[in-house]
Design a protein around this nucleic acid. Structure first.
Lengths: 159, 159
DNA sequence: ACTTTATTGTTGACAAGTCAACTATTATCC
DNA sequence: GGATAATAGTTGACTTGTCAACAATAAAGT
């Protein structure tokens, strides 16, 4: 027996379709797919690799865990990602004299070349996306994301 | 040989850290983990199941593909999700006379009970999250997400 | 000094998300 | 009415994301 429409007071009056978390879930999936495809065309590297390369390139040189803290990527994922990037000849490591546990990471010549080629492309994509927004939306979305992130607290992301 | 800091004109002046797609990636992950844990406490069902239950409950009864279109969940994922929900006794199907391909879905008594218990909890969570935002942010974030979704185009989500 | 605690990074196991091929049914269009 | 295309839903293979246990080194506390 099918159960009919539920009384109004049960599902209230607010539009359920814009459940915030789900909206973000969907938009995230689309932006991600878009970025990945775009990047594939530009440099042929995976999105996650780019995100890491960006962090290294930005600083010139960093450590594994500095990246982890900065972009909040899962440690395990990051470890495997860097391993692949080293195999691909994009990143090199050299020992940190002061701390035997960590290694300093930097881009190879090849990595740097790709970084330089990709950065402006990715930036113009970003500008395109942001350009679609009004000035107010542009300002609001970043602050709103910050607040939501804080409100969600520290779930996920095993330290 | 480590490669030093790159010249300013290479990485420009805009703060790279708020690369939009990545910000959304992170916020999404946190909101998701938060929602999942919250829901686990309330009803013990997975987030995706809830999202589907919400859609069925909202309409009283729907079809597989109507859900797919409405919430943009992957067909395959949805298929397996519904299968599990039927096994759990939350959803029942009955044949659609008009179209042999599809089946109408509705909540069972048990499903409805959980739906009724969970909805207000999830709504108050949503209100809490939204309550953190200013009026402007609240308005902007939804419209901004819409625009970004459109700008990202129809990548991903195999029809 | 030496035990305890924290940090760094690796690994394995698992869960969730994505894509594409495939069957069965219905709609469309000469 | 019969070929062609579209839609509904299932399934398998694969990718990505997440968590937790672990070894190695460093820092802190007594």
């Amino acid at each position: 027996m099918p159960i009919g429409k539920y009384p109004a007071e049960v599902h209230g009056d607010s539009p359920l379709q814009d459940v915030l978390t789900w909206r973000i879930h969907i938009v995230h999936a689309k932006l991600n797919a878009h970025a990945a495809k775009f990047l594939e065309g530009v440099s042929g590297i995976p999105l996650v690799h780019w995100r890491v390369m960006l962090t290294i390139g930005e600083n010139g040189s960093t450590t594994h865990s500095a990246i982890h803290r900065k972009i909040l990527m899962d440690k395990g994922q990051l470890s495997r990602c860097l391993k692949a990037m080293i195999e691909d000849g994009l990143v090199t490591t050299h020992d940190d004299e002061a701390d035997q546990r960590q290694q300093r990471l930097s881009l190879t010549k090849k990595g740097l070349r790709i970084f330089r080629k990709t950065l402006p492309e990715m930036r113009s994509r970003q500008n395109f996306l942001i350009g679609e927004l009004s000035k107010i939306e542009r300002k609001s979305i970043f602050s709103a994301l910050d607040k939501l992130e804080r409100a969600a607290g520290n779930f996920g992301f095993a330290a």
